[in-house]
Design a protein around this nucleic acid. Structure first.
Lengths: 147, 147
DNA sequence: TATTGTTATACTCTATAACTATA
DNA sequence: TATAGTTATAGAGTATAACAATA
């Protein structure tokens, strides 16, 4: 009987619910990535590269972490043959990171499994999904992360 | 003009939006905890102890991680004087973890700052908050984590 | 001078396996 | 036998600081 709160929830209640869902989401994402031999961070990087190559620095911006971390993360992805470093044609300092064919297929499979696994969303009808999407979208201040 | 999607969002769209918000939420939580000298995990443990002591094993269950990790996490919290280990009166194997006065105050301050910082929720009125809460609550399959 | 990527370093979190002391 | 907590170990992510190459 917890489908609807009797009164307007407090800010803290909503924050904690969001946090709980965020935690669970990350846990699910981690588990799904692991089933494909990836860590959550590696899967995230692969997802970021879905719309095209990015320089190391660009990846650091998307992951919101220090640039020095990217070296190791991309190293490990490269070791697994999922990604390649290519020199930029216009700036000899930058290296563009590109997914290999195998990297592309891998992230597609992770995405598919995410959809298949997350049955929670199946409990909402189209109108409810639209409403939720609208509300969540307004909640997002300046979050870029597609994953 | 992205307040409402023109059509019912796909499952993948909703999943990615949830993931984005989850990531941002965790990032904010990490930053807030850091301002109080804590890691996100440490703040999470402290939050779990808000409603009373828990055995090490109980903490592992709440954090959904292996029990061996809890030793180090509680060690560090104890080093900072935020938590204490107390022997159970009924089972000499178990140790109950209790917040110290300072630990209690710290987590209260973290919670306060979370509310003060998260201005995104201020853009929703009471009815919208109630709607969002209701939808999110139905999304949660078996997530316990209060934080 | 500023920026890109890297290295070195240290800390935290994570899982696995083996151990102890209790139950 | 099973459970609670610990230790040892290894891998991954994170930040800071310093560096070389390039802009």
């Amino acid at each position: 009987m917890s489908a609807r709160p009797p009164h307007a929830p407090t800010k803290l209640e909503l924050l904690e619910l969001l946090a709980a869902i965020g935690t669970a989401q990350w846990r699910d994402f981690t588990a799904t990535a692991a089933r494909h031999g990836l860590t959550a961070t590696q899967a995230k990087v692969l997802a970021q590269l879905g719309s095209g190559p990015l320089p190391m620095r660009g990846l650091a911006d998307r992951l919101v972490c220090d640039a020095s971390n990217i070296t190791g993360i991309v190293d490990r992805l490269e070791d697994h043959g999922l990604v390649r470093r290519e020199p930029s044609a216009t700036d000899r300092r930058v290296k563009n990171v590109v997914t290999t064919e195998r990297g592309h297929e891998t992230i597609l499979r992770v995405r598919e499994e995410m959809q298949a696994t997350h049955s929670a969303l199946d409990h909402l009808d189209d109108e409810e999904r639209a409403t939720l999407h609208g509300l969540l979208d307004r909640l997002r201040p300046s979050m870029e992360s597609p994953f």
